[in-house]
Computed example of a mutant assay.
Amino acid sequence: MAPREYGQYDGVTRALELVGERWALLIVRDLLVGPRRNGELAAGLPRIPSNILAARLKELQAAGIIRRVPRSRVIIYELTPYGRELEPIVLSLSAWGFKALGDPREEQVITPDSMTMALRSAFRAQVAASFPATAYAARLGPAELLIRVDGPSLEVARGDGPADLAFAAGTDIRRVLSGELAPERAIADGVVEVIRGPGVLLDRFAETFHLAA
């Protein structure tokens, strides 16, 4: 199936023709975290049909947004420099969509890549620069992330590791990120479980990562 054409000549129209098809921008979102194999992309988008994933990858390649690269006898997909220009747009869309997020439906899940991009969109570099370097090990639903903040620099990786604060939370972490729920109340109410480290560091986390609801 050919990508949709809208019959108008302007930048917004062309952008939608390139990344406006269903699933396309979510593929870009996950590739902004890092290169992925086909199977990794499918695992991160559990409801995408395999034929649609193949079609979107082909379309994004044809548009010069992603490319196939052989690596260690496997094929991976990565963004081209042109594709990486979408990063500030995706982060802004994430922050904009957060305002209308609401409560999750039962079938909705958190993935490591979606949470990584949510944290990147919520990151306040100027605020972080006022704090000492801090590492957080966060288990957010099934996603385990190691979050390192050093001044205005943010690094998010999958997995666990040494951290100043390790905590677990579900989708209600959005209430902490929005400021709706104070960190100490989130801990007291069981929304956030402190696994190790001083719980007071959750205040620093909430100041460093904030999205307006």
Results as ranks from 00 to 15, higher is better:
Lys99Asp: 02
Val74Met: 11
Pro162Lys: 11
Pro3Leu: 09
Asp164Arg: 06
Arg4Leu: 13
Tyr136Ile: 11
Ala157Lys: 15
Arg174Ser: 09
Ala206Thr: 05
Ser153His: 15
Ile76His: 14
Ile48Ala: 11
Arg36Phe: 06
Val176Cys: 09
Lys58Gly: 08
Arg36Met: 15
Ile66Pro: 00
Leu202Asn: 03
Ile195Ser: 02
Asp103Val: 07
Leu154Phe: 10
Leu101Thr: 12
Arg158Lys: 13
Ala143Ser: 09
Val12Cys: 01
Ala166Asn: 03
Ile76Cys: 06
Val12Trp: 15
Thr80Gln: 03
Ser72Asn: 14
Pro198Asn: 08
Arg71Ser: 14
Ala55Gly: 09
Val33Phe: 00
Gly151Met: 10
Leu181Ser: 05
Ile52Thr: 13
Met115Glu: 09
Arg37Glu: 12
Leu93Ala: 12
Leu18Tyr: 09
Gly102Asn: 12
Arg196Trp: 00
Leu32Ser: 14
Gln61Pro: 00
Leu31Thr: 06
Pro35Met: 02
Gly170Trp: 00
Arg68Tyr: 01
Gly7Phe: 02
Gly179Arg: 11
Arg47Met: 12
Ser130Tyr: 03
Gly64Gln: 05
Pro88Gln: 11
Leu57Asp: 10
Ala55Lys: 14
Leu140His: 04
Ile66His: 04
Pro104Ser: 05
Leu146Pro: 03
Phe209Val: 06
Pro183His: 00
Tyr77Arg: 04
Glu17Gln: 14
Val200Ser: 11
Pro46Thr: 03
Met115Tyr: 10
Arg124Glu: 00
Val192Pro: 09
Glu207His: 05
Glu21His: 12
Ser50Gln: 12
Leu79Gln: 04
Ala182Arg: 14
Glu21Phe: 12
Leu202Gln: 02
Val19Gly: 00
Leu165Tyr: 14
Gly34Glu: 10
Arg36Gly: 01
Leu91Ile: 03
Leu211Trp: 04
Thr111His: 07
Ser114Ile: 01
Thr171Gln: 08
Arg196Glu: 00
Trp23Arg: 05
Glu107Arg: 07
Gly159Phe: 13
Leu31Glu: 06
Pro152Ile: 06
Glu107Tyr: 15
Pro46Tyr: 09
Asp10Gln: 04
Thr80Val: 09
Leu101Lys: 13
Val192Gly: 04
Arg14His: 11
Leu53Ala: 06
Leu201Asp: 04
Pro46Lys: 13
Met115Phe: 15
Gly34Val: 07
Arg22Gly: 10
Thr111Gly: 07
Trp96Asn: 04
Gly179Ile: 10
